Computed example of a mutant assay.
Amino acid sequence: MKAKTTIMALALACLPGLTMAAGDLTRKPTGLPELVLGTEESGYGMSQTEYQLETGKSYSLEIQASGLKEYALKAPEFFASIYLRKVEVGAAEVKAVSLTELEFEDAGEVEIYFVPIKPGKFEFYAEGLEHKGMKGLFVVR
């Protein structure tokens, strides 16, 4: 049995690009640049239109709405491809399995904590305002 375990360990160690995670992947998140919705006087525009992420790495993303418009932030394929640890809104923490959208009726702020688990390019957008430039991309390697 010991020989089998040793052979398996050596085989895994020889696979290029294979990394073994140690510890809790959701702790010590990397803070991403804040996403501000409504950066222009008109209430349109986003402070970020692209985020570069890695699978298996923990992140936190603060999203802030200017309050100039109502914003329904959606990223359906991205939300389906992450491990969601929590969402913080004010003094509350929301522990949920997934997100559908983040809706802001007025000025407000939310912070999401997550780990991407699937590589790809995933769109995010303010529903109904995409034609005004309120869209972006999560690129997960």
Rank of each mutant, 00 (worst) to 15 (best):
I117W: 01
S42C: 10
E41I: 08
E123H: 01
Q48R: 11
L53D: 09
L68A: 11
E127V: 04
Q64P: 06
K28W: 07
E105I: 03
Q64L: 04
G38H: 14
G31L: 15
F79V: 03
E101V: 10
S81A: 07
L53A: 02
K4Y: 01
L15D: 05
A75D: 06
E54Y: 03
G136F: 06
V87F: 00
I82M: 13
L53H: 08
E93Q: 14
T55C: 08
T6P: 00
L53G: 06
T5R: 08
S66E: 11
P33C: 14
K132C: 00
L137N: 05
P16N: 02
G38V: 11
P76D: 14
L32V: 14
I63T: 07
Q52V: 12
L137V: 08
G128D: 06
I7D: 02
S81I: 05
S42W: 01
Q64K: 14
K118N: 11
G17H: 05
E123A: 05
Y125H: 08
E130F: 00
V115R: 00
T30Y: 08
A91M: 13
E101M: 07
V97E: 14
A80I: 12
E77K: 15
G43M: 08
E50K: 15
G67N: 13
Q48W: 07
C14E: 03
A9I: 01
P33F: 08
F79Y: 11
V36T: 14
E111H: 01
S58F: 02
V110K: 00
G67K: 12
V97N: 08
E123N: 06
Y125W: 07
L84H: 01
Q52E: 10
A65S: 14
E54G: 02
E109I: 09
A91D: 15
E62S: 13
G128S: 07
A11L: 07
P33N: 09
G128A: 08
V36E: 07
K86I: 06
T30S: 13
L61I: 10
Q64C: 06
V36L: 13
T19D: 02
A126M: 00
A21H: 08
E109R: 09
I63R: 10
L137H: 03
L61F: 09
E88T: 11
A22H: 06
T6R: 03
A96C: 12
E34G: 12
Y83A: 00
K121E: 14
E40W: 07
I7R: 00
E40Q: 11
P116E: 04
K121Q: 15
G17C: 02
I112S: 02
G45S: 03
L99T: 04
A91E: 15
